[in-house]
Design a protein around this nucleic acid. Sequence first.
DNA 1: GACTAACTACGAAAGATTTCGTTGACCGTA
DNA 2: TACGGTCAACGAAATCTTTCGTAGTTAGTC
Lengths: 129, 129
Amino acid sequence: MGDKPIPRPTDAELAILRVLWERGPSTVREVHDALSATHDSGYTTVLKLMQIMTDKGLVTRDESQRAHVYSSREGEQKTQRQLLGDLMDRAFGGSPAKLVMQALSASRASSEELHAIRQYLDQMEEEKA
Amino acid sequence: MGDKPIPRPTDAELAILRVLWERGPSTVREVHDALSATHDSGYTTVLKLMQIMTDKGLVTRDESQRAHVYSSREGEQKTQRQLLGDLMDRAFGGSPAKLVMQALSASRASSEELHAIRQYLDQMEEEKA
DNA sequence: GACTAACTACGAAAGATTTCGTTGACCGTA
DNA sequence: TACGGTCAACGAAATCTTTCGTAGTTAGTC
């Protein structure tokens, strides 16, 4: 017991998770440097967020080095699916088809992307058959 | 000028917007009653939220009656697309195809839904051609 | 007119999120 | 050993979100 479900990451937390997914396990310094391209939070801000994320269980921390090394607890895709499921419930009345179609209409997806999506659909229907 | 972009609605605000989309223009009382099925916020909580939403520009208010009548400023679909675009940027690196495919894989969509999505794809590609 | 019911307005409080300054610990090197 | 740089920890503040109690207003009824 005690395995509380991982909470939905906030905006700032999600930005940090994205760095961890891309870079793999990283120190606060590395995450801060990566974020500084797009965000301008200070070093201690990122540190504090990552400490909070450790408390929440969003990341794990290896303290064996002086500069602690953080890793995302859940994979990128699992987190993305969780966020989508959450949005589906909150904004789309739980209908996945509505969500997908709105996403398509909003996306201005390129022909290549539409093609990739179609192939993915084919694959899903094969598996279903 | 002065037309600030409408901010992303919070969770509680989105629940209220959903009622307004479904019911059309409504009083606080009506929204509160509709929400009470799933939420248990008090009347004044809903009132306060709707006043804040008026300040933010998320809803408009008709004060000609004693019980003010509120309407969602933006349509359901436009808001949904905004939320999806936001999530796409924050969690999917701006890739609509990744978002759609994750949504499909998470959705356990039925065959009917898959079919509807495919038809929608057909339609999009026709328009593109 | 007095009473009651329904409503808005206001302010405050609790909680969550984001920010960062300061402090003290640690490490390498001069 | 002292100095300079890097780091984690802590606490506090600013903002945003959500909550609701209280007060005052309006409308209808007896």
